[in-house]
Simulated scan of single mutants.
Amino acid sequence: MADSKYEGIDRRALLRDRREHRARVAQRLTREAPVAADCLPWAAFDAAPDWLAWPDDALVLWQRRVGAVFCAPALRRWIDTARVTALRSALGDGFYRSLLRADDPMAVATLPVGLPDWPLNGAPSEIAPLLRGCGAAVLVATLPHGGLRHAVSQALAPLAELMMPAAHAQALVKRASGLCAGAAVAAVQACASMPSATAADAATAAGAGTEAGTVIGGAA
């Protein structure tokens, strides 16, 4: 009996989470792509990826980080102090360090034909929007063709549509998720190694490593 009771509680929690997810996705798409969203059935909102239901700040940060993984080969060549500082600010220091330490996760992930090469001479203020645009393009490419992808593309306004297989885009997203997790772990370890470190310090460090707790969960 006890098992049945807990199973019921879990099922109710699952249904509640599903409704909340659907409502947040519907709210975002209705706000940012109203015409396309109006054509979607409820099943499409249910099938939407977790990141589409995240708060605005977390989703923007996630897009930048996915974009940074996509552009990693070019970003690792940057030496200009102002642009590097802007890049660290756009990604969070922990993620930036993890990105530089990682081996090239996708040697074949280059900007698609028709887009300019990464603007190495661009202004620092352009870096965050460009990363977000690249990340949005990758995230859209993870979705199957259809109404949901069309609505998400309108909502995120990617830099351009990427002509890449969904599996390729999903690998980039998975890599970004792993770097988020690595950045959080490194932040906790660094804090814990300090003589005055406390459990609260470690928790604060973990938050600094991800910049948004939801960025790790459900990202893959």
Rank of each mutant, 00 (worst) to 15 (best):
H145A: 14
G147A: 12
A186F: 07
Y6P: 02
L159R: 14
S193P: 02
F45E: 00
I79Q: 14
P124N: 14
I127N: 13
S4D: 13
E7S: 12
R88P: 01
W62S: 13
A82L: 05
G218M: 13
A155V: 01
L162H: 13
V35N: 11
A187P: 01
C180F: 14
L40S: 00
F70N: 07
M106Q: 07
A186P: 02
A155G: 02
P129N: 13
G94R: 15
A200G: 11
S98F: 02
L29R: 07
P105I: 14
C134F: 09
T85Q: 12
T110L: 12
S177Q: 12
V152W: 03
D10W: 06
P195Y: 12
P116V: 13
A68R: 09
P105M: 13
P41T: 15
V108N: 05
A192L: 02
A192F: 01
G92P: 00
L143H: 03
A190M: 08
Q154C: 15
R31F: 04
S196C: 11
G182I: 04
P49M: 03
D3R: 08
S153A: 09
W78Q: 15
C39I: 09
C180S: 12
P55Q: 15
P116I: 11
G217P: 07
A128V: 03
R88H: 03
A167Q: 06
P73H: 15
A43M: 09
A184N: 05
A44M: 01
L179C: 00
A200N: 08
A219Q: 06
V185H: 06
P34C: 08
Y96F: 03
F95A: 08
S177R: 15
R101G: 13
S196D: 12
A82W: 02
R132E: 15
L75A: 00
L99F: 05
P158F: 06
L139D: 06
L172W: 02
P119A: 15
P55G: 13
R12T: 07
V84K: 13
A212G: 15
L139V: 08
A157F: 01
A203N: 11
L100W: 07
A199I: 12
G92E: 06
R11P: 01
G8H: 09
D117K: 11
A86F: 04
V35A: 15
T110E: 09
G67Y: 00
T214H: 02
Q189K: 09
V66Y: 02
L14T: 03
R19C: 04
A123Q: 10
L29Q: 04
A220C: 13
A136E: 07
A151R: 03
L148T: 05
L143N: 02
W118R: 08
H168G: 00
A160N: 04
W118E: 09
G122T: 04
R28Q: 08
R31I: 04
H168Q: 03
R16I: 11
G146F: 08
W62T: 13
V188G: 05
A37T: 02
S153F: 06
L15K: 10
A26G: 07
G67T: 05
I216V: 03
D10C: 11
P49R: 06
R28N: 08
S193M: 08
